[in-house]
């Protein structure tokens, strides 16, 4: 995680890994984020996300909970083993607070419900990579 902190200090662009099986959503989200100086990589399944993560470091991961091949919670557990300090924001369309709370307990930074305001998402991303030590103070 030292490398992430280092990266954060040295470049303005934030590197985000977006994980969701809704291709249409990822495409438009990625486009919109890039216009706001957030570089994103898209993974359309949990498996793909883990593959990408092995090759490249990211500042933040935005993770959907309900995916076809592998559930978001399962992916989160593996990510937390691979890079325990890497902040993960859960973005779920299920609206289930129970699952989201489980995610937080497993080490997720925070969660948002789909559809969400882009500004909220960006705010969370910035908080996650800039103020990871104060994460508990962060409101929803």
């Amino acid at each position: 995680m030292d490398s992430v902190a280092h990266t954060q200090k040295n470049k303005d662009v934030i590197d985000v890994l977006l994980v969701d099986d809704e291709k249409g959503y990822l495409d438009v989200l990625s486009n919109r984020l890039s216009r706001r100086f957030i570089h994103s990589t898209k993974a359309f399944s949990g498996t793909q996300a883990l593959q990408i993560l092995r090759k490249k470091d990211f500042d933040v991961i935005v993770l959907d909970l309900k995916m076809e091949d592998m559930g978001g919670i399962e992916v989160l557990k593996i990510i937390k083993k691979m890079a325990p300090e890497l902040p993960v924001i859960i973005l779920t369309g299920h609206g289930s607070q129970t699952a989201a709370k489980e995610g937080i307990e497993l080490g997720a930074f925070d969660y948002l419900s789909k559809p969400c305001e882009l500004t909220d998402l960006i705010k969370k991303i910035k908080q996650a990579c800039g103020k990871t030590s104060d994460m508990l103070d962060t409101p929803e």
Binding site: E22, G24, Y25, V28, L29, N31, R32, K66, G93, H94, G95, S96, S113, K114, P115, C116, L118
Partner: peptide
């Protein structure tokens, strides 16, 4: 209801994001 809501949330999210885009 939960199933339907989830199914609707995703397209609605895309719709909103597309409009935003």
């Amino acid at each position: 209801a939960a199933g339907i809501a989830h199914e609707i949330n995703n397209p609605v999210a895309i719709m909103i994001e597309e409009a935003g885009w």
